[in-house]
Design a protein around this nucleic acid. Structure first.
Length: 194
DNA sequence: TGCCCGATTAACT
DNA sequence: GTTAATCGGGCAA
């Protein structure tokens, strides 16, 4: 699952999105050395209607149907980019959306790209993450275990939070949003445990 | 070809 | 809390 240098490889991503998603919380993600600690993600699976892959393969979502450990990038609301890690065995068409990072590397670069100095709003949302990391259509379909990407397993176990996904209307009740319960860098607070 | 709507964000009131 | 910005994908005709 982990290579000797703690880099996450395709075997890590070949598991269920519901194992991969929580395991990504606390992992380090950088693109060309710029990035931070993953604090919020969401899982998407072809069996539920909120997933882009729900209605089969199209030119846009083709990468989701490919092997795990690759990046799926799409344009959101005609304005933003969102990045996903393809998971599960090839052909499953499941992925994890990266929703928020705690900035740790290349902070000045991210401040410039985002046009703000506020650390908390630098990467607190999927569109913001891609803006800060300069992710665009060009990165769609690239392997995650090779430059410019670097994904390292977490060093310490965070307290996990789970909730419903944000900004969707279909399958809106599925609790497939995962986060670090103690991070203040998430896009929206997780509802406290009942 | 046309039409509707979205895995969002920032700037409003 | 509300809403405009902005455009490509997916589906109906």
């Amino acid at each position: 699952m982990l290579s000797s240098n703690d880099r996450l490889d395709p075997a890590f991503f070949s598991r269920s999105v519901h194992e991969v998603a929580p395991d990504l919380i606390g992992a380090l993600l950088t693109v060309n050395g710029v990035g931070g600690r993953i604090v919020e993600v969401e899982a998407y699976h072809h069996t539920e209607p909120a997933a882009h892959s729900f209605r089969g393969m199209t030119p846009r979502n083709a990468v989701m149907f490919g092997p795990p450990g690759y990046l799926y990038v799409y344009r959101s609301y005609g304005i933003h980019w969102c990045m996903n890690f393809v998971c599960e065995p090839e052909g499953t068409a499941a992925a994890v959306l990266i929703r928020a990072l705690e900035p740790t590397a290349g902070i000045d670069t991210m401040r410039q790209r985002r046009g703000t100095d506020d650390l908390r709003s630098l990467c607190s949302g999927p569109g913001k993450v891609c803006a800060a990391l300069a992710i665009t259509r060009e990165h769609n379909g690239l392997a995650l275990d090779a430059p410019p990407f670097m994904i390292r397993a977490r060093k310490a176990m965070p307290r996990l939070a789970v909730g419903v996904r944000i900004g969707i209307t279909k399958a809106a009740d599925l609790p497939w949003r995962y986060g670090d319960a103690d991070s203040k860098f998430v896009s929206k607070p997780f509802k406290p445990k009942a």
